[in-house]
Simulated assay, not measured.
Amino acid sequence: MTSRRKLVVGNWKMHGSHKANAELLEGVLAARPFGADVAVCVPFPFLSETAVTLAAGDIRWGAQDCSAHEQGAYTGEVSAAMLREFGCRYVIVGHSERRAYHAESDQLVADKAKIALAHGVTPIVCVGETLAQREAGETAAVVKRQLSAVIHTLGHCVAEMVVAYEPVWAIGTGKTASPEQAQEVHALLRAQLQAATPRAGEMRLLYGGSVKPDNAAQLFAQPDIDGGLIGGAALKAADFAAICRAAG
């Protein structure tokens, strides 16, 4: 049995309002205690109110992206230092939606992970293949390439990040990788990390992709799956709480 404590992170994506956020967080807080670490990654405008709401509890908060730059003339960007000022514990980098819609390269994702760590914010580095890549038998090559850039950029700090495997074909589609499919990729990633750091056994690898209350326990029971990065279900307090309980 692993000693790694499970981690469940809600990714709100571009959803939320003052009223909806208050109701959601109130519901999640009321469902405690959980037997896993729990966090929510929220849109930038809601970081302040989320920090205030969660300040006295054990649920952490984070952001969904950060700039690869320290500061400067980068209109619309948000720096890792700014996130740290808001008490962010985590920041998601390299989500497939960022890679697809904003043309983020493997190296840019790696640079974002590096600057986040430099400011004391833990990057949740996302990797994953498209349906076409899976059907072509390219899953291993794709995720190893994506993770390799981060490993080489972080160097000895690589064990400080969290990795999230999110098959693109399972994000927001209602489809999910079977526990066996997900474990196969997680084991591959763990082996790649073991070649880079003696602390790979301590690192938490999350699964994301249509995780729901009815499949979470099976997924989290796999030996190399240490929790989840949750999208749609994170917007419903009862569903998110159920997934957090499944991780405990």
Rank of each mutant, 00 (worst) to 15 (best):
T2Y: 02
R4E: 07
K6D: 11
N11A: 03
W12V: 09
H15D: 11
A22F: 02
E23W: 06
E23Y: 04
L25G: 09
E26C: 06
A30W: 02
F34P: 11
D37T: 09
C41Y: 02
P43T: 08
F44W: 14
T50Q: 01
A56Y: 08
A56H: 14
G57N: 12
A63Q: 04
D65M: 03
S67P: 02
G72D: 05
G76V: 12
R84I: 01
G87Y: 02
C88G: 07
Y90T: 00
I92V: 13
H95N: 02
S96Y: 01
A100N: 12
A103Y: 07
E104G: 05
S105L: 06
Q107I: 10
A110P: 10
A113W: 04
K114S: 15
I124V: 13
I124A: 06
G128L: 01
L131M: 10
R134H: 13
E138K: 14
V150Q: 05
I151N: 03
H152L: 14
H152M: 13
T153V: 11
A159M: 00
V163L: 13
V163S: 04
Y165A: 04
E166H: 03
V168Q: 01
G172T: 08
K175N: 14
S178P: 07
P179Y: 06
A182I: 03
V185E: 01
L189G: 07
L189V: 08
L189N: 06
Q192T: 09
Q192E: 14
Q192R: 06
A196F: 01
A196K: 01
P198W: 00
R199S: 13
A200L: 07
G201D: 12
L205K: 08
L206S: 03
Y207A: 09
G208A: 06
G209L: 03
G209H: 08
P213E: 05
L219Y: 08
L229P: 00
I230N: 03
I230M: 07
I230W: 04
G231M: 03
A233F: 13
A237S: 14
A242N: 12
I243L: 05
A246R: 08
